[in-house]
């Protein structure tokens, strides 16, 4: 019973919500590959985008609610608020193609301050930036989710501090990979509008369903989105490579001053 009340329950909720969020992102690849006679299946494919958008919103609320069941320290609230503000301001820096300066701070903070911090920083930065610039859209839950995941996943990297200079290089490569992944999953919100999801084995080869869908997505990604996302990946790489070390040093110095109790 005690397992179910404390951290175990928290981890369970987080896992379930993340799984659901993953389904919401990836459903275009898993819609059953059968063409029903009429109605039923086609209808199912047609209402999938709205169903999964609602699902994603619910998951976001649940994950955030799960993170804040404990009373947060005033310092955590203040630091998160200010870092979110800085990150939203950094988004205004223009750059080539898909470049954005707002992903590297969640990555570094997630790595230095932990998964919860990274998730909230990533998620709230996108929300605040959308509020400030007036850019709310169907993509916003997807953006919030993926940026939050990036901050969270960065906390799972092993501590690399003992490797010295290599730490920043590994983080920079990690940032580049995440920049590409961010682009790949952000395309998914409009992917059902580009192709006829579900009826993809239209060439008459049964069994090629999932792979055909993935293949078409890969082809679409390589021909259009990759060049755009390259800007973001290279931007992340350079930003972390050049500024990672001083920023990490700064974050660790302030961590001592704040005596962070977040974990």
């Amino acid at each position: 019973m005690s397992f179910l009340t404390g951290r175990g329950l928290s981890a369970l909720i987080l896992t379930l919500a993340t799984l659901l969020g993953g389904i919401a992102f990836l459903y275009p690849f898993f819609v059953p590959q059968q063409r029903g006679s009429a109605g039923g299946f086609m209808a199912h494919a047609a209402d999938a985008p709205v169903t999964f958008l609602i699902l994603l919103l619910l998951c976001l609320v649940v994950i955030i609610a799960n993170l804040e069941t404990r009373q947060m320290d005033s310092k955590v609230v203040a630091v998160l608020g200010i870092l979110v503000a800085i990150n939203a301001a950094l988004r205004l820096i223009p750059g080539p193609a898909g470049f954005t300066a707002m992903l590297f701070l969640p990555i570094l903070c997630g790595y230095a301050y932990g998964a919860d911090f990274g998730f909230l920083l990533g998620t709230l930065s996108l929300l605040v930036s959308a509020v400030v610039t007036g850019g709310m859209g169907p993509w916003l839950p997807y953006q919030m989710f993926s940026a939050g995941w990036m901050g969270m996943a960065s906390a799972w990297l092993p501590p690399l501090r003992r490797f010295g200079r290599v730490e920043v290089i590994i983080l920079a490569l990690w940032g580049a990979v995440l920049g590409l992944v961010f682009g790949a999953i952000m395309n998914l919100w409009f992917w059902p509008y580009l192709v006829n999801v579900g009826a993809s084995n239209t060439h008459g080869q049964p069994g090629a369903g999932l792979w055909a869908t993935v293949g078409r997505y890969a082809a679409f990604y390589l021909t259009t989105s990759l060049w755009w996302d390259m800007g973001r990946a290279i931007g992340n790489f350079l930003l972390i490579l050049l500024f990672g070390a001083p920023i990490l040093q700064l974050l660790r110095r302030f961590r001592k001053r704040f005596q962070f109790a977040i974990d």
């Binding site: 979110v84 909230l120 709230l124 605040v128």
Partner: peptide, 14 residues
């Protein structure tokens, strides 16, 4: 309310 507070601090500080 805590997340809402963080978001309002951020909006005020942008």
């Amino acid at each position: 309310y805590q997340t809402g507070m963080i978001a309002s601090i951020a909006i005020a500080f942008v």
